[in-house]
Design a protein around this nucleic acid. Sequence first.
DNA 1: ACCTCGTGAGAAAGCGGTTTCTCCGTTAGT
DNA 2: ACTAACGGAGAAACCGCTTTCTCACGAGGT
Lengths: 333, 333
Amino acid sequence: MTTRSGPATIAEVAAHAGVSPATVSRVMNGRFVGEPSVAERVRASARALDYHPNHLARSLALGRTGAVGLVVPDLANPAFQEVLSGLAKSAAEDGYRILVTDSAEHPEDEPELATEIRRRCDAVVLCAPRMRHDDLVTLAPTLDPLVLVNRPDVTVAAPSLSIDYGAGIAELARYMYESGHRRFAFLAGPEMSVSNALRLASLDRFASDHPDTTMVRIPSGVGIENGLAAADAVARADVTAALAYNDLVAVGLINGLAEHGIRVPEDISVAGFDDIPYARYMSPPLTTVAVPHTDLGVEAWDRMQTLLNSRRPAGQVVLTPRLEVRGSTDRLI
Amino acid sequence: MTTRSGPATIAEVAAHAGVSPATVSRVMNGRFVGEPSVAERVRASARALDYHPNHLARSLALGRTGAVGLVVPDLANPAFQEVLSGLAKSAAEDGYRILVTDSAEHPEDEPELATEIRRRCDAVVLCAPRMRHDDLVTLAPTLDPLVLVNRPDVTVAAPSLSIDYGAGIAELARYMYESGHRRFAFLAGPEMSVSNALRLASLDRFASDHPDTTMVRIPSGVGIENGLAAADAVARADVTAALAYNDLVAVGLINGLAEHGIRVPEDISVAGFDDIPYARYMSPPLTTVAVPHTDLGVEAWDRMQTLLNSRRPAGQVVLTPRLEVRGSTDRLI
DNA sequence: ACCTCGTGAGAAAGCGGTTTCTCCGTTAGT
DNA sequence: ACTAACGGAGAAACCGCTTTCTCACGAGGT
């Protein structure tokens, strides 16, 4: 009588029930079509031995793992955390798990990361806003099934979910214009960021459509500290409204302006972007553009789902942000 | 000439190089000790066929997947996101990936989730502050290697990383006491939450150590809306200081009090717990207790690492939060 | 010249399932 | 009564890689 070491295997269940492994497999997967008594015996044996199919072995035989990889630039970034949250919840409903990894904000590492993680699972959701276009084009076909998040790219066959940052900031600018503002500052995000480029392009268009406005571009960044650092430049810029790259920058800016004795919104209007949960509760409450990051994850799974069922999902989906007017901006007229 | 379908297999590389699969395997894993020319030929073939070992097959043969599961109650919760972030980054340095799942705040589902995810990977990091103790005791042995986060439990053999919430709130209470406050309100979190229980126990001890204080307990919750809802009760409670279960509750409370025309900190001092990134930038800046959630993830990986190398790590590690005094609390003396 | 030992590399047996293919026994049809 | 069809279940191949075991060959010792 040998003492069994690890968990029970299908062979042991088969022996215990006096049937073949094939039969056990069929019973376990609901593909069994014979004597009900046999099935019952197998089930009893499985229960007795506390048998659970080895997931790895199943995956190997089946050719699918039931997991999907998610690659993001930085897991510490709330925006990507929201994407993950939405994605993981939706995926879980279909019995899929998410394998996560981040590139520590090194876009050049992302192709390798994505490739590596792809080998461990059935598909990849790639969130690579800063990856070089060439890299993306060569990488994408090797990742299939692939869903792109926040990286609209018609060159690539993969479905893509993204936020229309341009439309969002345009709506904000239009609102500010209608409120009487003419002299704007834009606190720009990272040079290489696609979403920053979209904002810039949109604001350029806005400026040329409205020749009576000025738009000062101030290099900033993505964090509170970058907003703080930009306060000086904004104070000097002789503007009535500052549009920050995101809410964190806006928070920093408002605090930095306070140190200069500049009040928001009385002396200058400040708007953010993203609508982080706390934006509504700051004082003054932050006017911002609500970006549905969680929806991005949810919709990404929707596309992935159809992809995994080898149907062709809609190619490019663009979610539109929503303007949230609050107390940090003033109407001049 | 048959057209190859999927990616190259080890057998194909072997055929191409004119060697056996065993040799290819050894070369790929650096265990080859023969003619260097053979190794070079294998490497050339691998390159020519763009061969990459099938991760699943390797895992099955090796008995290890290079992935670790993380179970949390809610991926949308910033605290758990920070744990994930710290964990994923540390794990990545050792070549491990993280498979995440959340229980949608259903503690009763967590045993099954953890068991399921454990079958897909080499170990589990379990973050289950609300799981029933009995469940944990029966579950833990089946999950080994296991690291517990935020769930100190000497009954269970697994190493555990946690925050000393009791010490944190005690330090806050002591500071407030020294500032002259005597009448306190505590906005309690979820009934079943261990971390809430720790805060309560600590405050009870504080109250009995300081008979000249009163401590009103007000049921609240974990979100901004719960803080808002509690404002009324706090306003009625005739206290000089309110300690919120966490920063979100504090944010809600401050906003709710403002609606009652009650100023913070002039009329009542409010303190939070967690030190979320925005706490410092609110107005008034929030006095709070900084909780190192990211470190929790980092340290969890440290323990996991020693566990995976089958050494015995320190059993129970407790991280101490740090008091952050800011503008939302006033000294009365 | 013969035997032993060391070395390089292949054959084959797993890892733990799934699935095709095959076989055997029973039932129905004429 | 004989055969065709069918249904139930097992044998074996396979998924792709690792690793032990085995073997052939050449070198060195006596």
